[in-house]
């Protein structure tokens, strides 16, 4: 019997479809009977979506400008070599 703790261990694999067919069936059966685990899986999914929408593009603008500056110099140096 799959217990709640076992399910919590493999919840990500279930969400990503990385579980084998037997385990997937065990998880689905457990979810039919257990509201707490349904809440858990649902909340874990929401957390993931939150991650996907968040912070993929956060960047320290000072750091970005330092890189711009260096690239600008490197481009000039590269052009000089080519001339």
């Amino acid at each position: 019997m799959l217990m709640c703790r076992d399910l919590a261990r493999i919840a990500s694999d279930y969400i990503d479809g990385e579980l084998g067919p037997m385990d997937t069936v065990s998880v689905k059966l457990h979810l039919l009977m257990c509201g707490h685990c349904r809440t858990f899986i649902g909340s874990l999914r929401t957390s993931l979506e939150l991650m996907r929408g968040h912070s993929s593009h956060q960047l320290d603008e000072d750091f970005a400008r330092r890189i711009d500056e260096q690239i600008s110099q490197a481009l000039i140096a590269r052009d000089d070599e080519q001339d």
């Binding site: 993929s56 593009h57 956060q58 960047l59 970005a64 711009d68 690239i71």
Partner: peptide
């Protein structure tokens, strides 16, 4: 274009 790429890809 470099500036755009820097902002797009540096976080990753």
């Amino acid at each position: 274009d470099f500036q755009m790429a820097v902002r797009l890809y540096t976080p990753g």
